[in-house]
Design a protein around this nucleic acid. Structure first.
Lengths: 126, 126, 126, 126
DNA sequence: GTGGTCTAGACCACT
DNA sequence: GTGGTCTAGACCACA
């Protein structure tokens, strides 16, 4: 799987890492029980500091996407708290949709975009 | 309109302000040409520093939601760049939906949530 | 002559006024000895406060473009200090051209632009 | 490269900083990819507050002269929007030349001045 | 009275 | 050590 850092982005590197890994999981490119690359490997590969990868993994653990195993390193392990997830999604959507609506995006277009993203996730997951 | 700061939130105050104002615009509680409160007024009302409100207004200006009129202060003025907005929404949705999917949220549920948010925006806009 | 205020501009109203009047003089639309509109008239016509027009006229006087006559109000009266003018132009050009050069504008293009502006001034002056 | 603040100037410190850095870029003293000093360093060196340097950098970023890299700080990165640059230059020149013309500066003198400034920029760039 | 500018000091997140 | 955020207080230009 591709993981790439945009060094000019406003987003912190560890957030970029986290997001890309979560997208990987959603696309089934990483599956329950799979190991992520070691901290050192990933740091070298994408060209950032080990501490930063470490931070990303800590956050992923705390958010219930992986567990940290002494032998296997970071392992995909979803701790499903759907209520929490729904609440979080709701909050994020409210702001994102408001921004889009102000700029003239219609509900229909949003539904299509959602459809497209799910299609994308299912397709690549096969 | 209600604007409130959550002093316990991780989100920067100026981001909270920005988001609430954008939601207000999306809900038609603020309409094109309306003035926002002066930085000092709003700062006093919500209990934060003037400069923080100023920063929120600067960001809103730069993002094309308001303009700064020397006589009327901050005025709602949407600079509609739909292409940019769609791109931004796409990026945000991809991450948000990936997170939700990992935690077991279905496409159907997302569509309903989108529906609900738009309903909310239209209702209050009347 | 058209004088118009851009209420959204970053430039102070009195600076906008001053600049437009100076351009008017350069184009011979206002000639040595001509009277400018009264403070009140101009304020009403462009929709700003009298104080602001007053400030513009004061600056124009101080910079040697007009004199303030008790009976005739503001009268075009050029106090030519060419050395000072050259020095000022030099300073302004240095910054403006540096900005343009960084963005890929060539010397040739600048010369053409200068030519065009002078042409414009001479043409309308006839 | 020399960066100096004129504490007696009417120009805001952050504008002075911005202008000098832009002139530095135009003269190739700063080149694409070079890092600018950190806000604290530069603030100490020129004797102004850190936040003022920060503001200068923010403006430079917004105007497309630098980008902010999380590792390397402020990095020269020209976002060339020539159309925009030409328009801006045109506006500035129109006012500057009008002022000069009123004070008796000739078109020929302006061309020579432009020539001189470009020579200066090319010379030091070598 | 308004925003713009400048200073200053503090804490935190990030690298 | 770096920038980002927040607070705070002061002065000025502008309207």
């Amino acid at each position: 799987m591709f993981i790439e850092i945009d060094f000019n982005s406003e987003e912190a590197f560890y957030i970029q890492l986290r997001n890309q890994i979560i997208i990987g999981i959603a696309m089934n490119q990483y599956q329950e029980g799979d190991s992520l690359p070691s901290v050192r490997q990933l740091a070298d590969r994408v060209g950032i500091n080990m501490h930063t990868v470490n931070k990303a993994y800590s956050v992923l653990k705390q958010e219930g996407f992986i567990r940290l195993d002494r032998r296997k390193g970071a392992v995909i392990a979803l701790d499903v708290d759907k209520l929490q997830a729904v609440k979080e999604l709701q909050t994020n959507l409210r702001v994102d949709l408001a921004r889009a609506v102000c700029k003239g995006v219609s509900e229909e277009e949003v539904h299509q975009m959602v459809r497209g993203i799910f299609e994308d996730m299912e397709k690549r997951g096969q």
